[in-house]
Design a protein around this nucleic acid. Structure first.
Lengths: 140, 140
DNA sequence: AAGAAGATGCAACTTTGTTGCAAAATCTTT
DNA sequence: AAAGATTTTGCAACAAAGTTGCATCTTCTT
């Protein structure tokens, strides 16, 4: 596990530091997405709020994580699949937000269908967020 | 114009007040979506910040406007088409965010295609946001 | 092991959003 | 058209979220 994390960091020319390792651990340890607040809580407030902000910012710039749009105000972050290059990365899967448990899940296997835009509009990125009840909550 | 606005308000059992009229004017006077900040600026800070928040909240509850999810943190609001009933309204069109001019546009004529979710997931709402370059910016 | 480069924590601050309450505006009724 | 009931508004105070500068501490390089 720690091997994998060091790898991610080094591949992106990032130094291996406590907060970066811990935050990547969190992302790797679950399939869903994390909001800033989640991360603060789950690290046991071990790192400064500012450090978490800056770490996430760095990960975003490097394309290690991506943001997920939500209808409510909160930014969610999720790990990118390996082939996301810094900055412009391709994040063409559907995101699911569960209204019961609040978790956000990347449905990597569900590809976003194409749409035909009116003439003149030139798309560069497509996001699709589906909210409802997730598998785990349905089974309860 | 004012006729139309009064109509919207009365249809929703809302009293006709300065801020409500002005804010609806803004929405009707352009095709895109507005963030809270836009509204404050364009009203010339004539209304209290709190009033704007509360007005938007009321419009949301009545289904006069709807929110648009964005990957950055800002909530955008746009007018609903007439047939949105209070609370649960159907907002099944694609939203477009222009990276040049920053405007958010409802593509009412583009319907969100259906997707097949993995077993167990039960969707209640689907949002689709496409970013890129809008028609107006392309033509420049 | 030492120096350079980079990351962290702290403090102070800005921006964004919320709540309670008194004053003001709107609507209803006569 | 005015009085009273009901809503809405603005203010103040607060809470939460995010940012910046700077000194200190870590990490990386050689």
């Amino acid at each position: 596990m720690h091997e994998v994390i060091e790898n991610i960091l080094k591949r992106n020319q990032l130094s291996v530091t406590g907060s970066r390792v811990r935050i990547l651990e969190l992302f790797l340890g679950q399939q869903g997405a994390l909001a800033h607040g989640d991360i603060e809580k789950r690290t046991g407030e071990k790192f400064d709020r500012v450090t978490v902000y800056r770490t996430l910012q760095v990960f975003l710039n490097k394309g290690i994580i991506h943001t997920i749009p939500t209808a409510d105000n909160s930014i969610r972050y999720a790990l990118c699949k390996d082939d996301c290059a810094g900055g412009h990365h391709h994040d063409n899967h559907v995101h699911f937000v569960c209204n019961e448990c609040g978790s956000t899940i990347c449905l990597d296997e569900v590809t976003i269908p194409g749409v035909k835009l009116p003439i003149g509009f030139e798309p560069t990125q497509v996001e699709m967020v589906i909210s409802g009840v997730c598998k785990d909550c349905r089974e309860k």
